[in-house]
Design a protein around this nucleic acid. Sequence first.
DNA 1: TTGTACGCGTTATCAT
DNA 2: ATGATAACGCGTACAA
Lengths: 330, 330
Amino acid sequence: MATIKDVAKQAGVSVATVSRVINGIGYVHEDTRKKVETAITELQYTPNEVARSLYKRKSRLIGLVLPDITNPFFPELARGAEDEMQENDFRIIFGNSDEKLDKEQEYIQTFVQNNVVGLIASTNYPDTDTYRNLGIPVVFLDRTADNRPSVYSDGREGGRMAAREILARGSRRITVMRGPEHIRPAQDRFQGAIEKLKDQGIAYNVIHTSSFAFTEAGTWAKELFERYPDTDGVIASNDIVATAVLHEAQRLGKKVPDDVQIIGFDDISLSSLLTPSLTTIRQPAYDMGRAAARLLIQLIENKKVDQKTIQMPVTFTERDTTRKVEQQHG
Amino acid sequence: MATIKDVAKQAGVSVATVSRVINGIGYVHEDTRKKVETAITELQYTPNEVARSLYKRKSRLIGLVLPDITNPFFPELARGAEDEMQENDFRIIFGNSDEKLDKEQEYIQTFVQNNVVGLIASTNYPDTDTYRNLGIPVVFLDRTADNRPSVYSDGREGGRMAAREILARGSRRITVMRGPEHIRPAQDRFQGAIEKLKDQGIAYNVIHTSSFAFTEAGTWAKELFERYPDTDGVIASNDIVATAVLHEAQRLGKKVPDDVQIIGFDDISLSSLLTPSLTTIRQPAYDMGRAAARLLIQLIENKKVDQKTIQMPVTFTERDTTRKVEQQHG
DNA sequence: TTGTACGCGTTATCAT
DNA sequence: ATGATAACGCGTACAA
């Protein structure tokens, strides 16, 4: 690897001059600029980011902590963030936390050790010391902490929405699936759903789903129909779980949506490819990732930020695991 | 952020001594070690990886280039690689190439600029200068280049397997879906399938699927049944496409597997949750990721490597989009 | 307009 | 057993 010294020697100038042409800063004669530039291409020189980072005490690296990219919701967030960062010449160091504090902290430590200029984190522990006085801007993604920069969607409203729509379509023996307790958005949507249900005076059952893993989703689904076989409406904790419920319902010979209606959460890509295709509360994951990246870049560049917390809308995405609602009559 | 100097001052020793206790190298008196260690914890000192990296000309960072983590096959690879790397104190810088050479090269350049010690790449262009004389070990994942370190599975055999099994289960009007031309593994499995079909003297149709995106998968499925409505067996280019085909078949009122059998490729998590659940040729994605990481670590540490190219087995994973084969009679 | 020299935080060499 | 100091590659005062 050629260094700035090699270029200087080759061009017959000092390293300072080379540095100037690279960064386009300060005066430099047109002729010497040419010389330097040809030297650079001849030697295929590219600046050493590590040396730069050491001197400036900051890199072009961004840390990204996500729970688990094996859950299809998160790759969408990741791609949104990555694409936006890429376009702004930032690169991403990445880690899956599995929703565990120690893993998360381990990653964040190494991010900091590598001089990342900013952090995007989808964490359940935004209020730990880990994030206070980190010295670099942090944007929470898919999670919030009051008055800290964050991009998330309105889970509570999403929950209400799910309850409202499933009621409007005639389900009365509803089972709500409650996601993992330490995952905030999962609790928000659950709370929203039961809030609406209570509001309407509708009784409901609850099934606890202590993970979002594909491998375990089937278990919750089985448990659901064993414990509450007369369920005619399921508000699932997310699309993965909803998929498992749909699968199990069909295995039991139930007709969806005639016997059981199912509503998921997230709108991951596969949802529209199921049969029947999955009705769900959509979160604009990719856009959330982009928004988080944009917000972080603003923070990094000390731009004035119009809003520190961005709440994205959830939308009821009607497909075929719910019945068609009757036409309103005027 | 405290530096090694701060620690030295605090402990009343020189930076050299601090460095020794950190790295556990050379002699250092038990008492001074204690002093240094308490200073370290008091100041919450952690070494600056950037400075280390600059001096040593190598970091603890690994570059990972994948086509697109939005395709559920790749997060599995990524997690396998990440988990193995994490356990060995390496961290990952990541980029999605979208199978495009320029994006890929851009990422690799910044990886190199950041002193990564190794690279895991799922590339269609292993033989470009980008990878020759990079100066750091590279492991190709899910792709091969002759005699270069790589971890992949036997796509050709997988294709043959798919053809053999669908024939054994009675399909005779088979449509084979051919994946994107520039993606090697897609072509391998396609070639394997038609090889077997020709071998058995069975005619077949071909549908071209020029991407693996969820959003486009539906298009190929529609095209398939419009052009070849009497198809009674589909060998899909991967599980995403297979899912779309299943969806479309059901939309058209076809019974799966009675009217049409479908075989996918990869065995992504959702496949077992479809109804009917998807028969597929499984690649052990997570293990492939791990194996690639292990191989790369060996290369980095200059260990003698038992085998540079690791071919993982594909397995026929029989589920419900294929008919049960008749019992063999003795 | 250009060059010299120092510092960023480490590690390693060489004295002591 | 410990300390001074030169490098690693770059950017920037300051001098020329």
